[in-house]
Nucleic acid binder design. Sequence first.
DNA 1: TCTGGGGTCCTAGGACCC
DNA 2: TCTGGGGTCCTAGGACCC
Length: 422
Amino acid sequence: MYALVDCNNFYVSCERVFNPALNERPVVVLSNNDGCFIARSNEAKALGLPMGGPAFKFREILFKHRVAIYSANFPLYGDMSSRVMNTLGGLAPGMEVYSIDEAFLDLGGFGLIGLEAHARTIRRAVRRGTGIPVSIGIAPTKTLAKLANRMAKKDPVFEGVCILNDESEARAAMAGMAVEHVWGIGRRHTEFLNRNGVMTALDLADASESWVRRHLHITGARLQAELNGRSCLPLELVRPAKQSICTSRSFGSAITEQGGLEQAVVNFATKCALKLRGEGEVAGMVTVFACTSPFEERDHRYWGTRTVALPVPTQDTLAIVRAAEVILNDIFKPGFRYKKAGVTLDGLVPLAGSLPAPTLFVREEGREASSRLMQALDAVNSRYGQGTLRVASDASNGWKQRQERLSPHYTTCWDDIINIRP
DNA sequence: TCTGGGGTCCTAGGACCC
DNA sequence: TCTGGGGTCCTAGGACCC
């Protein structure tokens, strides 16, 4: 049996741990730039504030109901997440961390009798250890565990734990579940399935296998098998190496000068290189994009992007920054109001064993020097804060984000902890 | 005025190989 | 009536996830 443990309204719950006055109040957390709702308390959901809704369109509701509004505080949420995962890891023989607020657990070996008791133990342990409330769905496949989790969360009768023990329980659950809520069925597939009379998860489970294979492809076929209790998606105990690394941001206000855009792109390239070293990988390709708001008038819209291969796969900040600057220079067109940009690294391979024999153009000493420089860079920035030692063009006067309602970094920053006021 | 960020997997088609 | 079989690599685009 698999369990899916999912933190309730995770980002809101993180804010509430450190500010209990938020309990029972409507609370929302906004995306970067204070743009959209990315987490809502149950009270905020009841007010009709939609996931992904742009905050400025709901200003009246927010004001009228005195909704507590927070800018996203990802250092806090990331740290709370690892505390939750550490707690969960000790309570099951196998765990797959699926997202910042979800994990699959292997509950094989507990027997059907002990399952519910153990699930309740897990809930209590996470609540006691971290302050975060979770819901748990348990079933013979990951897809059914997802479905059970949704039921545990939506219907108070379950008190946070829903178990689908066998086929008849699974079928009853699926009959009451709209197909759009099945894991892996998004908007487009929902449209298509509904058009063809497939309205519930059970309809999908019972549909002709060849029809599903033809229209929903191999992923749909796997999903259907999982709904029917045949497990196709194993627990991934070790996180696979990343295949791409991306850093992108929207800007608080539009950028029109190349210099400002360059500062942002260099900053993103630097962040990508740091993540890359954290993964122990080297990158073979760099992509840069810069674009206007998609809500601009058609003639004022622009999306520029280009990818270049690095001469040698590397994790060197300076090499990656140089490549990014060359690309930006190439795609920048004056006369547009740039609202967002980003850098992506691709062609990632593990550093260990990745180094080709020295060639005419790449000598061993260069790589050694680069590696030592990056170690020094990371050591300084890790101790004194990211950005303490940086490329000169990585500056912040040309671009910034909006973060007007940021809570303190309660768990990761001494200065913030010292300055917390009741 | 104001609309997020970071990923994965799959398919189809082109170009190429023996 | 007729069309070989079996591959790889690359890219673009679509769909999905949180």
